[in-house]
């Protein structure tokens, strides 16, 4: 037996897409391979690193641990939808200015974690900002500049 395909309709960064996907396709593979949205990264495939963080139905999740079918009918936000055309999101501007992206691999997930936090809590304390990105591992920055960038973006937006 092969895993049967399922028709799903997902709104990705504001655009509705309908695709036939195998039931075992992860949301991460769906985004990267089927939709070509490779901004979302895979770091461990086990829900430990947060590199694949996207926002589904307003909640930050690890796309590697979800079946694409589970996102049927929902809104999915990825790093590609963060900027408004040419205009960067305040988080993107703050990350750039603070040096919060070094190698850049954790950055898409970090940005989405930052967005999920600010969507819920527009003016986080430093500690709340740290909690907001605690599920996203970064090995380059030591986190200080990322927390700083989230706080700066909060001031701006």
């Amino acid at each position: 037996m092969e895993t049967p395909r399922i028709r799903i309709t997902v709104t990705v960064n504001g655009e509705a897409v309908s695709e036939d996907v195998p039931g075992d396709r992860s949301l991460l593979d769906f985004l990267r391979d089927d939709l070509g949205l490779t901004g979302t990264k895979e770091g461990c495939g086990e829900g430990e690193c947060g590199a694949c963080s996207v926002i589904v139905g307003g909640r930050l999740v690890d796309a590697c641990l979800i079946f694409a079918a589970e996102a049927d009918g929902r809104n999915v936000e990825t790093v590609e939808g963060l900027a408004d055309g040419e205009v960067l999101h305040p988080l993107q501007r703050a990350f750039a200015a603070a040096g919060a992206a070094q190698c850049g691999y954790c950055t898409p997930g970090m940005l989405m974690a930052g967005k999920a936090l600010l969507d819920r809590n527009p003016s986080p304390t430093r500690e709340e900002a740290a909690h907001g990105i605690a599920g996203n591992l970064c090995r380059c920055t030591g986190y200080g500049t990322i927390i700083q960038a989230v706080m700066e973006a909060a001031k701006e937006s």
């Binding site: 829900g47 947060g50 963080s53 909640r59 930050l60 999740v61 690890d62 641990l65 979800i66 974690a113 999920a116 909690h131 907001g132 605690a134 599920g135 996203n136």
Partner: peptide, 9 residues
């Protein structure tokens, strides 16, 4: 329990 990502699932 786990990260925010985990608690959201």
């Amino acid at each position: 329990v786990g990260s925010i990502q985990t608690r959201n699932r």
